[in-house]
């Protein structure tokens, strides 16, 4: 192992790691709102709207993220959808993770006992107030856990945007290998950085989870 080289390239990799984090956070942020929209669409009485949401989720879950990325980046321009690489990574990442996240949100909401809704409605609370005051506080813990897992998937997926030459952690590593011919050192270093990022995220999730769970341990 060439430790001098590893120290030398660290600043460049750290800089690229920020791009990885940036893309992931933005995808997660927008993905969350898209996911909430998908959950909302599935609650419609009017069936075609529900079918649309279900169909979208099925298509996204039934195709590889990599293919979705290539399709939008290379296929998009022919229908006038021209995105720069980073935007493309964020947008495809968000629309991809939203499909999984909507299922996670729906699952956590459905995990709340139906008796809770009945008790709330029988007191005279409306649907929205029941959701906000009764259901969401109780589904929060599970929701945080499952969204956390998806955040980690998102971070790992972000390495794939290297294919459309976004200079994130994996692309930068490949570039450095091209000029140094030291794949072992550089990939080890980049893997280590993924570990740090992902464990930091897991720590944050755990804290948030415990906060959401606190009423059961009081």
């Amino acid at each position: 192992m060439d430790f001098n080289l590893m120290i030398e390239v660290t600043p460049l990799l750290v800089k690229a790691a920020w791009i990885t984090i940036d893309i992931s956070i933005r995808s997660l942020f927008f993905g969350f709102f898209i996911a909430c929209g998908l959950v909302f669409l599935q609650s419609f009485q009017f069936a075609p709207i529900r079918w649309f949401a279900r169909g979208y989720i099925s298509v996204i879950r039934g195709t590889p993220y990599f293919v979705q990325l290539l399709l939008v980046f290379y296929g998009g321009p022919s229908i006038g959808l021209r995105l720069d690489p980073i935007t493309c990574g964020v947008v495809v990442g968000a629309f991809n993770i939203a499909a999984y996240m909507s299922e996670a949100i729906r699952g956590s909401i459905e995990s709340v006992d139906s008796g809770q809704v009945e008790a709330s409605r029988s007191l005279g609370f409306g649907k929205v107030q029941t959701l906000v005051s009764i259901i969401l506080p109780q589904s929060a813990a599970l929701m945080i856990r499952s969204i956390g897992i998806l955040a980690i998937v998102l971070i790992k997926n972000s390495s794939l945007v290297s294919i459309i030459s976004v200079v994130e952690l994996t692309y930068q590593a490949q570039r450095l290998i091209g000029s140094t011919y030291k794949p072992l050192e550089i990939f080890t270093l980049s893997a280590f950085m993924y570990v740090i990022i992902i464990y930091a995220v897991m720590g944050i999730i755990e804290l948030a989870y415990r906060r959401a769970m606190r009423y059961t341990t009081l």
Binding site: G115, E118, A119, S120, S122, L123, Q138, Y215, T216
Partner: peptide, 16 residues
Amino acid sequence: RQNMGMVFQHFNLFPH
């Protein structure tokens, strides 16, 4: 419903 109190077999208290 605000004028009707309902008590359930399984209580359905809000645990949070």
